[in-house]
Design a protein around this nucleic acid. Structure first.
Lengths: 159, 159
DNA sequence: GTTGAAAATAGCACGAA
DNA sequence: TTCGTGCTATTTTCAAC
């Protein structure tokens, strides 16, 4: 079970993070550009100490990276949609590559069930959406649900 | 159309970002903790100039925030799933609140179609998944697809 | 984890294109 | 306007404890 070449379990799974790490994660999730000194003030520790904790959270795989929250709408992508994609028989890999090569798909998960892929799409217009889906139509059946709003904005898993 | 109280269009929609802004966004998306001086070196400008551009991208709504990419699996959430949720008649708002109050739902969009909500769920085990879905069962019908993998990791819209 | 010193950085004013 | 330079305050990093 514990084949070291196949780490199905990552470091922190068995040594749960403590309260300080939780506060660090929450603070950095809200603003990943916080200075280590400011973060240190927030959690009541010295800067080198929190800096070392952040480093360990990265090394342990908890923090996969520091990233950006970009508003697609502000870039003119006025329509967001979630697209379920069911490749025709034998077309699974072709379809996956096509999704990956279509930059308007900004995210795609492989899932169980009738439709192997669920992808997040951003487009400027209905016409652009039609172009993207049309390009898939020879290889897959798609079901598109336009996003009307957000009930839960991306948030951390419970810590 | 241009009711200032309802800014359906944000700043950058009509004045597209230039090549330098694109490189700034790509670099910060890869590592939002880059120092302004390092970022300046990457794009070949002075630090104050780059700093001002980042400030404008924030003010213009393109950059909504600087955030963290946390690996739920490293925290012990070994199962991720996408859940379509269809509230029973009259239960829409109850269900939405229930989703929001269930921290294992780390994201939820309101969408068109038969199922008004599509939520992303993280749980430690099948038992925990059952607990969460069971709590919804008096108010909604759910369809759950377990995530087997990722074809496209979250990426920026085409710039 | 803490402290303290050296190097790097950020933020600001100001002038130039 | 937007960018570059130079100054100062802050921050990061490393050492020693």
């Amino acid at each position: 079970m514990s084949n070291p070449k196949v780490p199905h379990r990552l470091q922190y799974e068995n040594s749960p993070i403590d309260a300080v790490d939780s506060r660090i994660l929450a603070a950095l999730d809200a603003d990943s550009r916080l200075s280590m000194s400011e973060l240190a003030r927030l959690v009541g520790m010295s800067a080198p100490a929190v800096s070392e904790r952040v480093r360990r959270l990265e090394a342990g795989g908890v923090i996969r990276g520091f990233t950006l929250d970009v508003d697609a709408r502000a870039l003119g992508y006025q329509i967001r949609a979630l697209v379920r994609i069911r490749p025709l028989p034998g077309k699974l890999h072709v379809v996956e590559k096509l999704i990956q090569d279509t930059p308007q798909f900004i995210e795609c998960d492989k899932i169980t069930g009738d439709d192997p892929f669920l992808a997040r799409l951003v487009v400027h217009s209905i016409e652009e959406m039609d172009d993207v889906l049309e390009a898939l139509s020879d290889y897959a059946v798609t079901s598109t649900a336009v996003i009307k709003g957000t009930s839960v904005a991306r948030r951390l898993p419970p810590l």
